[in-house]
Design a protein around this nucleic acid. Structure first.
Length: 830
RNA sequence: GCCGGGCUGGUGGAAUGGUAGACACACGGGACUUAAAAUCCCGAGGGCGUAAAGUCCGUGAGGGUUCAAAUCCCUCGUCCGGCACCA
């Protein structure tokens, strides 16, 4: 008869709830541990990826609690966002209702899994008591001068009907729906995350040692620092000084053209100074380029298009006239939106020049003595080499030349050292309804005016009908739009755009520290105590999104004195995907497994055990119904042993026999097994976060207990010790069944409050060890020897074994390597 | 193209310089049973060998360092991931 998991799990969930045992309190006298999981979007139901994420977190939270830490562990819902609007249209409901009912359902699912959350701390971002503080923080950023509006070509997704931040464009498409992103000129709200680019970069090295290397590299690439110089070209005809950024100032003598992005401000000036016919051609070129999607335009393999203007810039070093082109491959938002074209040493410029027949002048030759010829080169020479065709600098090595030439250029006022970042300012506006209203109003008299803090929150009207994708119902709500100017009291209009939902998720962990605070986003003393997060767990897909934004928030909040930590997440664990039939589980592939059904069939403990045992957390995990059965079978095996032997085990629970009082070798072996299990499981959970091997050790302990067929009193006492340790160590993984069996054995206290066992050194000592005998590195025999034998004695003892003697016959022993308690390797000749 | 991470039995995976394959799944055998399921026990990398003994091979391929390499180094293959016209 399999154990009755349904009733047992419900029983213990009720007990935990009634006893408030997972509620934590700010208490500086205790050592804290903040265990955080990426909170879910309430899409309707939990999927296996969530179950995996939260099962990992719960093991750590329960383990650390048992180890005396004051653990903060809770959950919330990242509940603003577009799917609610789409669902509202599809199901003829309101985003608000759809979202809250999803939250209710998913909360039930989470509770059914037995996660040890402090539910009082839950944060739901779509409620005014949360998003009020989004608005408040946004205003603090505005006060600090890092929030601004600008009109710029921004990423536009036509399917979602909204703009996107740079981080939300994946391979030229929208991160949610994949629609190719186009550029659109719009006036939008931005946050100057670029002010923090250097610090975001520096702190990766300095403080993120507890993060996977992969994520650190991804962020480093994303921030994309490059060092170089800024130089300028005078354009006498237009009375303009055109600036360009380069990382290769050493190739400055190789400039044969200048290229501008079609969006560059100079383009308009040029048109004004051109004859009507040419100006018309230029306009046509610019609109051709702007009609290209960002994939067509900015993919590495995309065709380069150019337009030759009648203007020239003056080379800052040689004074020569350099023709100015407009080219589709120049990006307006990197550097200055203009480049010095050096076709001999830049493949893009090379391709462009070959196409438009622009001269190519090599100024670096390969170190092997080859002399390049611009007319016959087949590709750009981008490696380091020796400078040529560059007057005084000829003969220098590239690495020296870059430095020397910039030094010289700075002295001569030709260039200026500069650092550029790939990271762009964070575009925060969204043309959506279901998000945090941006707390600004537009007044004809006073302009753009922030909503005063005492008037927050700017409430999002909930009783609306979303009619079509991409059209915010706020635009049809005069009672929302029409307001009075906080400045002059005259009529004004509210900002109808809402915030990127990544704003909500950039500080929710601070809110967890001070739930329900209505005076501030959080209480400083709470956050000072709990933050930073000691262990963060979530998917790798947020490496360059949420994890950058949240780091930026941390630095900003510290700068305005609200917090004192500069990095929010000390350690990060990125769990792999849950795979079925070789592909990521997804609705569109129809290969999902419903957690609720699985829990109904096997119980939460089984699902948790399976998902933690099947693979180490950072690997992808292949779903296997058979292995779920296997996990279930193991729990039944544990249950059966304890239940069938409950009387004997109970009768022997009043003492622990120390190792030195045990004579029988089988019993000594079990005693040792108990303590090596404690040692290894502790190490695997805390140091390695390798739960699959921790569970394997517990399975071994169960096998060892089953294997001991000895009904002496000492044997039962030991088996009782083994079972107590087993239940305690298994409880973070499978909390319900272990509580029930713990109680069955007569324990009064709840197991979740019981201290983690500690391994007793004396019980870890081995009586005898297997010594591997090798000859020339090959295993030739294994011999039992007492542990701790002295090196020379061990060597003598193994060498004198008949089997070894036979093999040494007729050979010369060259040398013997002995590793105490492990092996003897005899090196022979002949 | 650049950067990073993998590659170990039929399968998921152990082992981070010292007995390769822990633990589990699947499989085979046995016990129990009228039978089956469940359970308990046993076996198992591959080759040669009836078997035992033995012996050889074996961690993507090849080379190197070492008494000793899945583990360290070099070259290559392959798969996955990230970035990619960022001047």
């Amino acid at each position: 008869m399999p154990y009755d998991f349904a009733n047992i799990e419900q029983k213990w969930q009720e007990r935990w709830n009634e006893s408030h045992c997972f509620e934590s309190h700010t208490d500086p006298s205790k050592e804290k541990f903040f265990c955080l999981e990426m909170f879910p979007y309430p899409s309707g139901a939990l999927h296996m990826g969530h179950i995996r994420n939260y099962s990992i977190g719960d093991v750590l939270a329960r383990f650390l609690r048992k180890n005396g830490k004051n653990v903060l562990y809770t959950i919330g819902f990242d509940s603003f966002g577009m799917p609610a609007e789409n669902a509202a249209i599809k199901y003829k409901t309101r985003p608000h209702d759809w979202t809250l009912s999803n939250i209710a359902y998913m909360t039930e699912q989470l509770k059914r899994m037995g996660y040890s959350y402090d539910w009082r701390r839950e944060a739901i971002t779509c409620l005014p008591e949360y998003y009020k503080w989004n608005q408040w923080i946004f205003l603090q950023m505005y006060k600090k001068g890092i929030v601004f509006q600008k009109e710029a070509p921004v990423n536009w997704c036509s399917t979602c009907g909204t703009v996107l931040a740079n981080e939300q464009v994946v391979e030229g498409g929208c991160w949610r729906c994949g629609t190719p992103v186009t550029k659109k000129n719009l006036k939008q709200w931005f946050i100057k995350i670029t002010d923090y680019a250097q610090e975001l970069l520096d702190d990766i090295e300095k403080d993120l040692g507890g993060w996977p290397r992969r994520v650190r590299i991804m962020q480093t690439n994303w921030i994309g620092r490059s060092e170089g110089a800024r130089l300028s070209f005078k354009i006498p005809e237009l009375n303009y000084e055109l600036e360009a950024f380069t990382t290769r100032f050493d190739t400055v003598y190789g400039i044969t053209f200048i290229a501008l992005a079609p969006e560059h401000e100079l383009v308009k000036r040029m048109k004004d100074s051109m004859n009507a016919e040419d100006a018309q051609k230029l306009s046509e070129f610019v609109s051709l380029v702007s009609s290209q999607s960002s994939i067509e335009r900015s993919d590495a393999g995309a065709e380069k298009l150019g337009f030759k203007t009648p203007f020239y810039g003056i080379h800052p070093v040689t004074g020569k006239k350099i023709p100015i082109w407009i080219a589709n491959y120049i990006l307006i938002d990197y550097g200055t939106g203009a480049i010095m074209g050096v076709p001999a040493h830049d493949q893009r410029d090379f391709d462009f020049c070959r196409k438009y027949d622009i001269p190519i002048i090599p100024v670096i030759n390969p170190s092997d003595g080859t002399v390049l010829d611009g007319s016959t080169m087949t590709h750009a020479f981008e490696e380091d080499g020796i400078v040529c065709n560059s007057e005084n600098f000829n003969g220098m090595k590239t690495s020296d030349a870059i430095k020397a030439m910039i030094d010289w250029g700075e002295k001569e006022n030709i260039c200026k050292r500069e650092v550029n970042f790939k990271l762009r300012d964070w575009l925060i506006s969204r043309q959506r309804y279901w998000g945090t209203p941006i707390p600004f109003v537009y007044c004809d008299k006073c302009g753009v005016v922030p909503v005063p803090e005492d008037q927050l929150p700017v409430r999002l009207p909930e009783d609306v009908e979303v009619k079509e994708v991409g059209h915010s119902p706020l635009l049809d709500l005069p009672e929302f739009l029409n307001t009075t100017c906080p400045h002059c009291g005259g009529p004004a209009r509210r900002e109808a755009d809402t915030m990127d939902t990544f704003f909500c998720s950039s500080w929710y962990f601070d809110r967890y520290c001070s739930p329900g605070d209505d005076k501030a986003p959080f209480e400083k003393s709470d956050v000072d105590y709990w933050m930073p997060v000691d262990q963060y767990i979530g998917g790798i897909e947020h490496a360059c999104l949420h994890l950058i934004y949240a780091r930026f928030f941390a630095k900003f909040l510290t700068d305005i004195g609200l917090t004192k930590y500069r990095e929010p997440f000390t350690r990060l664990l990125t769990q792999g995907m849950v795979i079925k039939d070789g592909a990521k589980m997804s609705k569109s592939l129809g290969n999902t497994v419903d957690p609720t059904e699985m829990v109904k069939k096997y119980g939460a403990d089984t699902i948790r055990l399976f998902i933690l045992f099947a693979a180490p957390p950072n690997n992808d995990l292949e779903w296997s119904d058979r292995n779920v059965e296997g996990a279930h079978r193991f729990l039944n095996r544990v249950w059966r042993y304890v239940e069938e032997n409950a009387e004997a085990l109970k009768a022997h629970g009043d003492k622990i026999i120390p190792m030195n009082a045990i004579k029988d070798s089988k019993l000594r072996e079990l005693k040792r097994k108990i303590h090596t299990t404690i040692r290894d499981v502790t190490h695997d959970i805390y140091d390695e976060k390798q739960f699959n091997t921790a569970i394997a050790r517990l399975m071994e302990l169960v096998n060892a207990v089953y294997a001991l067929n000895d009904s002496s009193a000492d044997s039962w006492t030991l088996k009782r010790e083994a079972v107590d340790v087993l239940l305690n160590c298994l409880s973070p993984f499978c909390p319900h069944i272990t509580e029930e069996l713990w109680q069955m054995l007569g324990h009064q206290n709840m197991l979740c409050l019981e201290a983690w066992p500690s391994a007793d050194d004396e019980s870890l000592v081995k009586d005898s060890v297997t010594i591997v005998a090798q000859i020339n590195g090959k295993v030739r025999g294994k011999f039992e020897r007492p542990a701790g034998m002295e090196k020379s004695e061990l060597e003598r003892s193994i060498m004198s074994e008949k089997m070894i003697q036979d093999r040494l016959m007729g050979h010369e022993v060259v040398k013997v390597i002995t590793v105490p308690d492990k092996l003897v390797n005899i090196v022979i000749k002949g």
